[in-house]
Simulated scan of single mutants.
Amino acid sequence: MTYPEISADIALRIALAARALPDTDPARLLDVLADAIGLPPTEARLAQLTVKQLKTAADGELGELDPALLKGALAYLKGEAVANSAPPPPVESEEAVPDAIRVACASNGGASLDGHFGSCRRFLIYQVWAGGHRLVATREVGQPAPGEDKNAHRVELIRDCQVLYVASIGGPAAAKVVKADIHPIQFPEGGPAVERVLALQQVLADHPPPWLAKHMGRTPAERTRIALETADT
């Protein structure tokens, strides 16, 4: 299909929306938009676009995707979430801390925990321990190598982490994450990544569950003691 000229602002919106959807590039999304609202996709036309139209246009091309993902893509298309394309916060140098773990947060912009595992732009890597936390790395996802499984590529980016925070994750992807001995936790409501990290920091300071105590390097005897203490509280 030949596409009419699109303004730089609209092109950015489409690119960001496509990145927010698994296995979707701008060309695929443009085909859907062409059927839903016609071409060119102007600001006025995008303002009238609905999630239902995204699901049903082009014979349901995007109909199998999670409605929450489509809602996020729609926010980009309407220009409401372009600000979320902000760069991540600066990282700090990592230092050896007893019982520290690493947490990967799926993010699309700034310091937000707002990414689907299969489509997020980057992972924010936090070092977390009972007395503090620090952002030690940001890892852009990029494109997998030719023939490489997309989810396997993403797992490799966070293989040194013990916990994964995401807005959502599909079953097959979650199975790959768990196989890599990483514990995935979903937060559909999203929010600032640091809020979840602070909550985890408090858990580490109090009574970490046995699976988390194992990642902290606690011995089986210590994990049993923690489990008994938790049961008594």
Rank of each mutant, 00 (worst) to 15 (best):
1 M>D: 03
2 T>E: 07
7 S>L: 11
14 I>Q: 06
15 A>T: 08
15 A>V: 06
16 L>K: 04
18 A>E: 03
18 A>I: 05
20 A>E: 05
20 A>C: 11
21 L>P: 01
21 L>H: 10
24 T>P: 05
25 D>R: 01
30 L>K: 02
33 L>H: 01
34 A>C: 12
39 L>M: 08
40 P>R: 07
41 P>D: 11
50 T>W: 14
56 T>W: 01
59 D>C: 05
60 G>Y: 03
63 G>S: 00
71 K>F: 12
75 A>S: 08
85 S>C: 12
93 S>P: 12
93 S>A: 14
94 E>H: 11
95 E>M: 13
97 V>Y: 09
100 A>F: 11
101 I>M: 05
101 I>F: 03
102 R>P: 01
102 R>L: 09
102 R>W: 05
104 A>D: 03
106 A>N: 06
106 A>H: 02
107 S>H: 10
114 D>E: 12
120 C>L: 04
123 F>D: 03
126 Y>I: 10
129 W>L: 05
129 W>A: 00
136 V>N: 04
137 A>H: 03
138 T>L: 06
139 R>S: 04
142 G>S: 07
154 R>V: 02
156 E>M: 12
157 L>F: 06
158 I>K: 04
161 C>Y: 04
161 C>I: 08
163 V>K: 03
172 P>A: 07
174 A>T: 10
175 A>N: 13
177 V>H: 00
184 P>H: 03
190 G>H: 07
192 P>D: 03
195 E>H: 12
195 E>G: 14
197 V>R: 02
199 A>W: 08
202 Q>H: 13
207 H>E: 15
207 H>K: 15
212 L>A: 14
212 L>S: 09
214 K>C: 11
216 M>Y: 08
219 T>N: 12
221 A>P: 14
222 E>D: 13
226 I>Q: 12
231 A>W: 15
233 T>E: 15
